[in-house]
Simulated assay, not measured.
Amino acid sequence: MDKYRFQWNDRLGIPLPVLEFDWDAYSEDEQARIVEQWETIRGAIPDRIIALEKRIHIEQARLYEEDDFDTSCEINYEIAELASRINDLHIWYRINQEIEPRRHS
């Protein structure tokens, strides 16, 4: 069994770290490898957010033109889900800021 892995998350469109132990239980070399892999993934998050924002703009345009209430509700739900994904991506993007100081202490 691996001590850690990066597992694809369909909802966010990026692989996420799956750590089997608390961060401090990893050796400095393991922590460095994890951070290095995460940095590569993390670098793609802004592009992912931009893509989701474009989808929100498309859905907002659809909503503006929609006259059917039920369809409008569905579009609003889709916009809310996309916004939730963006929020989650922002949280994951900040994860490195929490790991780096611990790694250097």
Rank of each mutant, 00 (worst) to 15 (best):
A61D: 11
G43K: 00
E53V: 06
R85P: 02
R42W: 04
Y93L: 13
A61H: 08
A51K: 10
R94P: 01
I58K: 13
I75G: 01
R94V: 07
R94E: 12
E81R: 15
I86S: 03
I99L: 15
D67V: 08
I50C: 04
R55T: 08
I99G: 02
I49D: 02
D67Y: 11
R94A: 14
E98A: 11
F69V: 14
D68Q: 14
E65A: 14
T71P: 02
R42M: 07
I86D: 00
E100Y: 07
A61C: 03
D88E: 11
R94H: 14
L52E: 10
L89P: 01
A61R: 11
I45T: 04
R42K: 15
H57N: 14
A80Q: 11
I79Y: 02
I50E: 07
C73E: 15
I91A: 13
K54E: 08
E59Y: 10
R48C: 08
I58C: 04
S84W: 05
A80V: 08
A44V: 05
Y93H: 12
E78H: 14
Y77W: 09
D68I: 06
I79K: 04
Y77S: 12
L89H: 03
S72M: 10
R62M: 03
Q97L: 13
E74G: 08
D67Q: 15
I99K: 05
E78R: 15
N76K: 13
W92D: 02
D47T: 05
A51L: 09
Y77M: 10
A44P: 03
E81D: 06
H90T: 04
E53F: 05
G43N: 01
F69E: 15
C73A: 15
A61K: 11
C73S: 15
G43P: 01
F69D: 15
